[in-house]
Amino acid sequence: MEKTDMIYGTRAVIEAILAGKDIDKVMIQSGLTNDLVKELIAVARNNNVPILFVPPEKLKRLSTKNHQGVICILSAVSYSSVDDLIYKAYQEGREPFFLILDRITDVRNFGAIVRTAECAGMTGIIVGEKGSAPITSDAMKTSAGALNHLPICREKDMKKTIQLLHDNGIRIVACTEKTEKSLYSLTLTGPIALILGSEEDGISDAFLKEADELARIPLKGKIGSLNVSVAAGVAIYEVLRQHGN
């Protein structure tokens, strides 16, 4: 992570939030309880900025500067609204095509997925406010610049977001090994949102319950799973194939 991705110090971070900077998260040293830190926490929460309380060793690994126990990680992109993207797609006569990422934390995987999604002309990618890869200059580099072109939506309440997709006629398809139904047996036309899950344990049960369809990518070898960025490419381009693109 480059130093330009970070802001140090409690007051500086408060001012960055109030100035409307695009912020990925704020890390605060565990145990800090002074009035300025309390003000920072209130400002961050009022502006929907994620807060992580971390041990001092974590901050020291990020920077040796006098950070006062507070480091802000800047986002490399401005976040978009799911509602606005849905409206724009329908207004332009296009069927919305989203990708929902559930706890994808590896920056390289995230960047590779964004690159594929942008090449496929997807409407946007939806990530949770917490538990997602930081969108920094490293992610920008790995995406080969695709983050400059593909809208990213960061949502606090993913359940409400999925309901919004349903309400707008968008079918939710979860790509998971927890089903016997093949991806290639599904009809994947019309407005669609694909869900892909964590590199460690796949899609969470909460997301699986919200999906309209579960589908697996058939595997013929001895290894039990694909890298998540590869799985994303397979699923995205199967949707494109069925749409005749």
Rank of each mutant, 00 (worst) to 15 (best):
I51F: 13
L52E: 15
L52Q: 14
L52Y: 15
K58E: 05
L59H: 10
R61F: 02
R61A: 04
L62G: 02
S63G: 04
S63M: 03
K65W: 08
N66S: 12
N66D: 15
H67Y: 08
Q68G: 00
V70H: 10
I71R: 05
C72I: 02
I73F: 11
L74A: 02
L74H: 10
L74E: 09
L74T: 04
S75W: 15
S75D: 10
A76Q: 10
V77M: 09
S78D: 11
S80Y: 12
S80I: 01
S81D: 13
S81Q: 15
S81C: 09
D84A: 12
D84T: 04
I86Q: 01
Y90H: 12
Q91W: 04
G93H: 11
R94I: 02
R94L: 05
E95R: 07
E95G: 02
P96C: 05
P96M: 02
F97H: 03
F97S: 00
F98Q: 03
F98M: 04
L99K: 05
L101V: 01
L101P: 03
L101Q: 07
D102A: 01
D102P: 04
V107Q: 14
R108S: 05
N109W: 12
F110C: 05
F110N: 04
G111M: 04
A112H: 09
I113A: 00
A120G: 07
A120E: 12
A120W: 13
A120H: 11
G121K: 15
T123E: 11
T123K: 13
I125C: 09
V127D: 08
V127W: 07
E129G: 09
K130C: 01
K130T: 10
K130E: 14
K130H: 14
G131P: 09
G131M: 06
S132G: 09
S132L: 07
P134C: 06
P134L: 08
P134Q: 15
